[in-house]
Amino acid sequence: MAGYFNSILTGTKSLVTGLLITQAEFFKKPVTLQYPHESLEMTPRYRGHIQLVKNPETGTHQCISCGMCQKGCPSGCITLKGVKQEGVKGKVLVQYDLDFTTCSLCGQCIENCKPGAIEFSLEYNLASTNKEDFHYDLLERVKEQK
């Protein structure tokens, strides 16, 4: 019988302890963000999809079409093409496509890039019902970039 009342007592005590702790949270500021209305800014090292770095002086990218990013990519999601053009030293980049559906954001392309022509973007609000929306033409994007 004593055990019965004892367990009621410890149970009530345990319940009250829990309630006191949770109650204290009522008076604290919320830790969450009202997401679509507010959103966080990503840290500078955040790994979004890759993009070509825009050189502010020339207004264009710095890619030399060496293809090292393509070679180093574990998922084979980079397709690029450089062609020889008269009067220009080296190859000229004419196509740089990223298939973001298979990218695992490991950063090996960026590490392989000697001229530092690619970087991670800070974009993370990416959602679509169409897979094609994640096939990026990075050459086109660098032109639009401010």
């Binding site: 830790v31 840290t43 090292r45 955040y46 790994r47 695992s104 954001l105 490991c106 950063g107 590490e111």
Partner: peptide, 27 residues
């Protein structure tokens, strides 16, 4: 969440990290 924020500031990702490299670190 605090840990994820801290690790994100260093590694760039929140869950599927790829931070270590042969012989060292990414950054």
């Amino acid at each position: 969440e605090h840990i994820l924020d801290l690790l994100e500031s260093v590694t760039g990702s929140r869950l599927t990290y790829c931070y270590y490299r042969f012989g060292g670190l990414y950054n």
